[in-house]
């Protein structure tokens, strides 16, 4: 079971703004869905490898060869806001990026 507090933490992690009623609804849904998932806990998978990829393909590469880029205009047209050749967002305070 997850708590209402957990729901809020998850929402922050996922960058979602939840209103109180939405948080409550999701809390209920998540508990019902995650409760259903409980059935997996009974399965013995101690000797089973996880399947992260299908059909066992391996070693797919491309050569280190240049191909034409998109024109900068393509990016700027898509961007909700830009300045010169840059995409613009409200100022980022924490300068660390990844932790």
């Amino acid at each position: 079971m997850i708590s209402n507090e957990d729901v809020k933490k998850l929402a922050l992690l996922a960058r979602l703004n939840l209103s109180e009623p939405e948080a409550q609804r999701l809390h209920k849904d998540l508990n019902s869905i995650l409760g259903y998932m409980e059935r997996l806990q009974k399965v013995d998978v101690s000797k089973v490898d996880p399947m992260s990829h299908v059909h066992g393909a391996t070693n797919v590469f491309r050569e280190d060869e240049l191909k034409p880029s998109l024109p900068v205009e393509a990016a700027l047209e898509l961007a909700p806001d830009h300045s010169g050749r840059f995409i613009r967002v409200p100022i980022v305070i924490d300068q660390g990026g990844e932790n």
Binding site: S83, R85, F86, R88, V89, P90, I91, V92, Q95
Partner: peptide, 13 residues
Amino acid sequence: NIHDSRTHSSLID
């Protein structure tokens, strides 16, 4: 990110 405190925005390259 280039931080531009003057316009209170960050510019992305």
